[in-house]
Design a binder for these strands. Structure first.
Lengths: 337, 337
DNA sequence: CTGAAAGCGCTTACAG
DNA sequence: CTGAAAGCGCTTACAG
């Protein structure tokens, strides 16, 4: 398979390399007939420009980095997919970096900025903490999804997120309204002041407000996976068999927990209610279907891409956008009143 | 944030650009002290080479393309993840292209070959058919995963796959041994002679061998998603309520089907048995847990990477490797004898 | 063991 | 509307 260069095309079309480049980049200043001839040649030889050479050009490089932390997380997968699909309208190329939950997304961002001349960056599954320091001094526009980047200290970072604290409150209100007072908390969020800990704080403070004391023993640190949800729920219910509800900080944890309960001879929701979070697709199909908080994936994706586009193309100031999430009542939570 | 070039580093370390390049590429011919000095400078300024410039170099370019067709497919996601993780040992960079199930992976491959100078290619979720023609004449080593590439007509393509036909037979034997004779077939595979149609053929011919007539009405074309599995199963059971078993050609279809059956007032496996395929993680956690064919994801990934590496580095001839898959008996299938 | 120079395939002022 | 030339940041013969 012959790989043609712009020079080949120029020769074959009987024009200069400059002219081919102009056609390739849809510049207006090419005579109609010339353009047609060049386009025909490009089509004939299936010519596709070398991106490496293109990326080496002086000025603006139209590559956007998408860094996804948490490979096998269905929620982040769905979000990434939506972002990718929204980003198709952009003139830029997207470079996707999938990294493990234990990897440092900011180091990856740093590397990406140097490796390719990136004009924008989107983070999926990032947790903002002191590690972000490595990006100080960068002027590449970026947007954080599902976390509030207001306090990241990055003057060129936007963010799109739900109000995790408020949603945490609403979940707790819901569970309390159903008569639950012994509620297990499965997830993570004890540490920093990010969206995950806000989510947990919302739950915790609401319980407190209703005089439901929840000590540390009701919280189990769980990674956001089915396996961890299973393990945590299993060991938790061995110790606290009289618990009537679980707040799983992700749907994956919820799915693992439901299976663990079944293996312990308990039925959901008859014996125990399980409240999920995120609203991943599978939650509609499981038995029982998941009661959960549905993050507006399409809206987060669309807003993120728009924000980034606006920053890149118009030099817009970063913004921190809040979007609405809905509680979806399905089958995994019931009232015990 | 300053972005340094190799020239900056050369100047700062008091050596030539050539020497920095040598250090960067771990060439042996650099004096120990010089190397140390250059390395220190690189570390000090967090220098990372520009990949675009690197990719533009004359000879071998160490970039491998990974083309994944079928974005939200959990099985392909797991496989891709495993490949990515195995590929970390390689000196090459990986460029991942996620494309939709309706997109043409071979056009993507073609573009990738031109865009970046790729030295190898791995396909995930590809179906080999006449579209592969666009790659004729390419001499880039490639490997197909989960499909048998023997008949692709590509002299530089390896493949790693299970014996779909044999597994299809075993699934059918299993179902028949459980007393099922009215078996719905949900999936795809009527057309070409690829792994999916082999899978279906295995089932079909085994049924025939046992004198179980299965006409077209028992087959429903379903995309490999929970939603399609749901819709197909729902409409199917409305028409054929006396069916006692389903062979879902993927676990996602199985999960959708189980939910559809529930919504029709049928229980799995009490009323209907559902046999899945692929062995995705969630199948362990669903209620009922999925009886399925488990594809050896790690082995497929490892073998694929090894094969590609061997072709790239040693010019090894392509091979078509068959790996073993296991039937996992869990809860979704029961004997009705 | 080290460096000067050519060149990878593009884009972009600059000149016409 | 078109083209010749410089240059992006690397690597790689080549020379020493």
């Amino acid at each position: 398979m012959e790989v043609y260069t712009i020079r080949d095309i120029a020769r074959l079309a009987g024009v200069s390399v400059t002219t081919v480049s102009r056609v390739l980049n849809h510049r207006p200043d090419v005579k109609k007939e010339t353009r047609a001839r060049v386009e025909a040649t490009i089509a004939k030889y299936n010519f596709v420009g070398n991106e490496n050479a293109r990326g080496l050009k002086q000025t603006d490089n139209e590559v956007i980095g998408l860094i996804i932390r948490g490979r096998s997380n269905p929620f982040l997968n769905a979000l990434s997919e939506a972002i990718l699909s929204r980003a198709e309208t952009l003139p830029a190329n997207i470079v996707t970096e999938y990294i493990d939950e234990k990897d440092d997304e900011f180091k990856t961002a740093f590397r990406l900025m140097q490796q390719r001349r990136i004009c924008g960056l989107i983070f999926v599954g990032s947790r903002i903490d002191e590690r972000v320091g490595i990006l100080h001094g960068s002027d590449v526009p970026m947007v954080f999804t599902t976390v509030d980047g207001k306090n990241a200290g990055l003057p060129n970072a936007s963010s799109v997120s739900i109000d995790d604290y408020a949603l945490g409150c609403r979940v707790a209100e819901d569970l309390i309204a159903c008569g639950h007072t012994r509620i297990a908390l499965l997830g993570t969020g004890r540490l920093s002041g990010d969206s995950l800990s806000n989510r947990l704080d919302g739950v915790l403070e609401t319980l407190k407000k209703h005089s439901i004391v929840t000590d540390d023993s009701m919280f189990r640190e769980s990674r956001f996976s089915m396996k961890d949800g299973y393990d945590c729920a299993y060991s938790f219910f061995l110790e606290h068999p009289d618990t009537t509800a679980v707040f799983a900080m992700s749907d994956t944890i919820a799915i693992g927990a439901i299976r663990a309960l079944r293996d312990l001879g308990k039925s959901v929701p008859d014996d125990v209610s399980v409240f999920g979070f995120d609203g991943i697709e599978i939650g509609r199909y499981t038995l029982p279907a998941l009661t959960t908080v549905e993050q507006p994936v399409e809206e987060i994706a669309g807003t993120s891409v728009d924000l980034l586009k606006d920053m890149i193309e118009n030099g817009a100031a970063p913004r921190h956008v809040r979007v609405n999430a809905e509680i979806i009542h399905r089958e995994s939570v019931r009232s015990i009143l």
